[in-house]
């Protein structure tokens, strides 16, 4: 056995040892698992009103957490952003409801619609009490296909109504889930629509 082969073998062993130490050390989690980019948490102001009937203005959040999945979403300025959420996601709180924006990993061997109907909706049926679908529709905005699922369920003994919009993307799908108590849903419905329509991929071209 010559020296070169022995040194390659020794180098490989060292590299594997280094890889093992790096992967399982606390430091590596920071580099391997996506982290929240502070830029994502600072909204820019948009002085355009939500819709013709409301004077409330929107804050625009530019999410820069995951490469290939940069997006913007606009929410009313008075909605409160909940801190410490995973990379790529936001949770906003407002009276009698919540709205979340997140990225969803759809397996390569499935389409978004198939995934929604076969996996995600059945998961909702199992996890939510008294789940009942009230509407399902497919719309297209700015070339993005959006699948919109509306359902009612009971959360903390309150009947709530939720609109869940899945926005197709090149890598991951965008997922907006806006929920409020059923009796206030009509009041928020146009705002939820505006939030869903505001979702845009930033690096889709």
């Amino acid at each position: 056995m010559n020296k070169v082969v022995i040194s390659i073998f020794a180098f490989a062993l060292l590299a594997l040892g280094g890889l093992t130490a790096y992967t399982f050390s606390p430091l590596s989690k920071k580099n391997v698992v996506p982290q929240v980019n502070p830029v994502s948490l600072v909204p820019t102001e948009n002085n355009i009103p939500i819709n013709s009937t409301s004077s409330a203005v929107l804050d625009v959040y530019h999410n820069r957490d995951m490469a290939e999945n940069y997006y913007t979403v606009s929410v009313p300025k008075n909605w409160k952003l909940e801190p410490n959420k995973p990379a790529g996601s936001y949770t906003f709180l407002f009276p009698n409801g919540t709205c979340t924006a997140e990225l969803m990993d759809v397996p390569d061997n499935s389409t978004l619609e198939l995934y929604i109907l076969s996996q995600d909706e059945s998961a909702l049926k199992h996890s939510l009490s008294h789940y009942s679908r009230t509407n399902y529709q497919k719309i297209s905005i700015d070339g993005n296909e959006i699948y919109q699922l509306t359902y009612t369920s009971i959360t903390s003994r309150i009947l709530s109504k939720t609109v869940r919009a899945y926005i197709s993307g090149q890598d991951r799908a965008g997922l907006l889930t806006c929920s409020s108590a059923q009796d206030t849903f009509t009041q928020y419905s146009s705002v939820f629509d505006a939030v869903i329509k505001s979702f845009k991929w930033e690096n889709s071209k």
Partner: peptide, 25 residues
């Protein structure tokens, strides 16, 4: 993500070093 990070690099390093060892041998 973590397990893929480890396994993929482990296989790449092992494979590359084995190929090199074979060539030089």
């Amino acid at each position: 993500i973590m397990i893929n990070f480890y396994v993929s690099r482990f296989l790449a390093i092992s494979g590359a070093s084995s190929v090199l060892m074979n060539i030089f041998w």
